[in-house]
Amino acid sequence: MTRHPPFRKVFYGVATREEMFRLFNHHRDDPDVDPLSGKPYSGEWFEIGATQYHFMLGLLPPLFQRSGMFGLSEYKAGDVTSVFFAIRIRGRERFFHGFCDLGDRQSPDKMRAAIIAHETGAADSMTREEKLEAIWSATHPDFKGIAGETDPGDWPAEHHGKRFVLVRGGPDMVLKLLEDLSDDEIDIRMSAIRAHHANRGGASDADPS
């Protein structure tokens, strides 16, 4: 099973309301996910807009609330719940959502610190794992899947349950495991995602294939 870093950015850019709700459940179709633990989500975070932040604040009475932070009273699973952050970074207030495991009471503060460290770091401070998560989240469902789910014969048994993406379409279609993407393939897809978010006029998935 893949080992994730404690805190990881899973979406590039500012998620719209539609994208935010999709990211709330983006592990629901992943194999070997225990829906009662919430662990696949724990530590994930992404940026949202002010409108989404205030909408979620008014949706349910918060589990807890303090300056620049509140937790959703409806748990995702186990001890994992949504925590929303309003953080001033380089003079501008920005808003974020993260899944925190409240089994560790310091988890929200640790996540806040991780977000600040990430967003004030180098221009391209995303780790390889974070880029892969961003690529997976941005890729349209028609261009990604889980190895062995539809046609087990297409993939060796040891790869069943792993995520794959379309690398090249057309008659010479090529599929590749997400974890096996080369640095060049990752850079191409990240450039496509950045361009999509810089130029988009609405809410839609990027197809970086």
Rank of each mutant, 00 (worst) to 15 (best):
G68Y: 03
G68F: 05
M69V: 10
F70I: 03
L72P: 00
L72R: 08
S73L: 04
S73P: 05
E74M: 11
Y75A: 13
G78R: 05
D79I: 04
S82A: 11
F84S: 04
F84I: 11
A86T: 06
A86E: 13
R88S: 09
E93S: 14
F95L: 01
F95Q: 00
H97P: 00
H97F: 06
G98V: 14
G98M: 13
L102W: 12
D104W: 04
D104V: 07
D104E: 11
R105A: 08
K110P: 00
K110A: 04
A113P: 06
A113L: 13
A117L: 11
E119T: 05
G121C: 09
A122S: 14
A122K: 14
D124E: 15
S125G: 15
R128I: 11
E130L: 07
W136P: 01
T139E: 03
D142K: 09
F143Y: 13
E149D: 15
T150P: 00
T150M: 09
D151R: 10
D151L: 08
D154H: 08
E158R: 13
H159Y: 13
G161V: 03
R163M: 11
V165Q: 08
V165N: 02
G169P: 06
D172M: 11
M173Q: 15
V174R: 15
L175C: 10
E179H: 08
D180S: 09
L181C: 07
L181Y: 09
S182D: 08
E185A: 09
E185D: 13
R189D: 04
M190G: 11
S191E: 15
S191F: 15
I193K: 10
I193Q: 02
I193P: 00
